[in-house]
């Protein structure tokens, strides 16, 4: 009974839904504030200390706004997408090892589930665009699927590259074992540096941020697949996207930076694993923000071109390296 209650609390409060909802909003704030600093602006300032509550204030405000569904839209689908998006991102974060080496959900092969979830996000984007029955969302949806063709293989390859060691030594595809193998040596401090770079680019594309914000390019197609969403639905989608941001940063930290392992390999710090995990995720987030600030948006054909000419071959190369090199060392 008590165990059930604890499990429920683990899912709903910590380290599950509520924790990640707050973390997602916090990450949005860091992203905006740091982006603003890079651009010589002040960024969010008024809601809370240093504008810390601005994302939350935006969320509350959007919840109170009028909610419009376009006349021609596929109403049930259109209205359910925000709920699905939020549910999906909240489901995804349960796999992250926030405290201890394993997440709330952990089983053999959960890495595959995580990669599948990443693809599901794009399917939701696609459905959102098409159920809107409007031109800009239609173009945006089309672009998001085209973009998926570009970055999905590199993303999966980089994730598998991070798991190469555990696959070979333990035959395991579990996030927990990936984290445990990094207790002495983070995987980024080796050939995985390349995998990490590929993961960052792919994550940027998955999150639809500059230079890959093509599906929601503001100056081209208004807000892309999000154009017709308003009010509560938009608030939920934005929250889902924030959580997705936190999820991908967390995934990067887990796979390449040792997740909740102590800050320096071998150094047992006083910090709890949760704080270490969050700090590492923030490092990933800051890198993503720098990428966002330093580039302009690519065109969809350039993006797919770039992905297939460079990203896919390099990611396959790094996967091969990740598989071969440890073996060579062992021999």
């Amino acid at each position: 009974m008590i165990q059930d209650l604890i499990d429920l609390l683990r899912i709903i409060v910590f380290p599950g839904f509520l924790f990640f909802a707050v973390l997602g909003l916090f990450f949005e704030w860091i992203d905006r504030k740091f982006y603003a600093k890079l651009q010589n602006r002040v960024g969010p300032l008024y809601a809370g200390p240093w504008g810390l509550f601005q994302p939350f204030a935006d969320f509350v405000k959007l919840m109170a706004k009028e909610d419009i569904v376009p006349e021609g839209a596929d109403r049930p689908l259109f209205s359910s997408i925000p709920v699905f998006a939020l549910a999906l991102s909240l489901f995804a974060v349960l796999f992250l090892p926030v405290c201890g080496a394993q997440g709330v959900l952990s089983f053999e092969g959960d890495l595959i589930v995580v990669t599948v979830i990443l693809t599901f996000f794009v399917i939701l984007v696609f459905l959102a665009g098409f159920s809107s029955a409007s031109r800009y969302p239609g173009v945006g949806a089309e672009r998001s699927v085209l973009q998926l063709l570009g970055y999905e293989i590199p993303l999966v390859a980089s994730v598998l590259g991070a798991a190469a060691v555990t696959i070979q030594t333990e035959g395991s595809l579990q996030i927990k074992s990936i984290v445990e193998t990094q207790s002495s040596w983070w995987s980024i401090l080796g050939i995985q540096a390349l995998g990490f770079a590929i993961f960052l680019l792919a994550a940027q594309a998955e999150l639809e941020r500059v230079p890959f914000d093509i599906p929601e390019a503001e100056t081209e197609i208004v807000a892309g697949w999000l154009t017709e969403y308003s009010g509560k639905k938009l608030a939920l989608i934005r929250l889902a996207k924030d959580i997705e941001l936190a999820f991908l940063c967390g995934l990067g930290a887990t796979l390449f930076l040792g997740g909740p392992q102590p800050i320096l390999p071998g150094f047992v710090g006083a910090l709890s694993s949760t704080i270490i995990f969050v700090i590492k995720s923030i490092i990933v987030l800051l890198i993503l923000t720098i990428i966002r600030a330093a580039m302009s948006r690519l065109r969809i054909d350039q993006m797919v071109n770039f992905a297939w000419k460079y990203l896919v071959p390099i990611s396959i190369l790094q996967l091969l390296l990740a598989v071969m090199v440890p073996r060579l060392i062992v021999i």
């Binding site: 651009q39 503001e218 600030a293 948006r297």
Partner: peptide, 12 residues
């Protein structure tokens, strides 16, 4: 710069 999505240049 804003039209091609390069907001940093725009701000500077």
């Amino acid at each position: 710069a804003h039209e091609i999505g390069f907001d940093t240049l725009f701000m500077y």
